[in-house]
């Protein structure tokens, strides 16, 4: 049994990376391994926007990650610096920055880049999807 963390930088609806990362994550869990943390960075953070609204016949990546996180108790961590720039905010950040509303899906959590390093140190493998 091994511990994995993922670094995801792929733009959710422009690249295949997020779809690949979802499949990889499921395969890791099916093999009986552990996911320590999934860290979203750069354009990858866009998937945490709860207002993402793809057509009904396309996979909703935000909901797919959220479902997996809830069912399998996985940490979905979003880089706060990358997120704020791109309009992904929680209630506290919305208030701090005088924005009208929060936009992050509740399955995801805003945090610092240190969470990525910490995940690396606590994992056997880091796999990047960009």
């Amino acid at each position: 049994m091994a511990t994995f963390s993922l670094l995801i930088t792929a733009n959710p609806y422009s690249n295949q990376g997020q779809y690949s990362a979802l499949k990889f994550t499921k395969a890791v869990l099916e093999a009986g391994h552990i996911i320590k943390r999934i860290f979203f960075y750069a354009d990858g953070v866009l998937v945490a926007n709860r207002l993402n609204c793809p057509p009904a016949d396309e996979l909703n990546l935000t909901k797919s990650w959220a479902k997996l996180a809830i069912e399998k108790d996985i940490e979905l961590t979003v880089c706060v610096t990358a997120a704020l720039k791109r309009g992904i905010v929680n209630q506290a950040e919305a208030e701090r920055n005088a924005l009208t509303s929060e936009s992050i899906d509740p399955a995801f959590e805003l945090s610092g880049l240190g969470q990525l390093t910490e995940a690396m140190l606590a994992s056997d493998r880091l796999v990047t999807f960009g």
């Binding site: 930088t9 960075y41 750069a42 610096t81 990358a82 880049l113 240190g114 990525l116 390093t117 910490e118 690396m120 140190l121």
Partner: peptide, 19 residues
């Protein structure tokens, strides 16, 4: 692309952890 700066930021964070 922003990737150079983004990678540098990870690098600085890892240095803070003394890796």
């Amino acid at each position: 692309q922003e990737s150079g700066k983004e990678l540098l930021d990870i690098c600085l964070m890892c240095s803070a952890f003394e890796m």
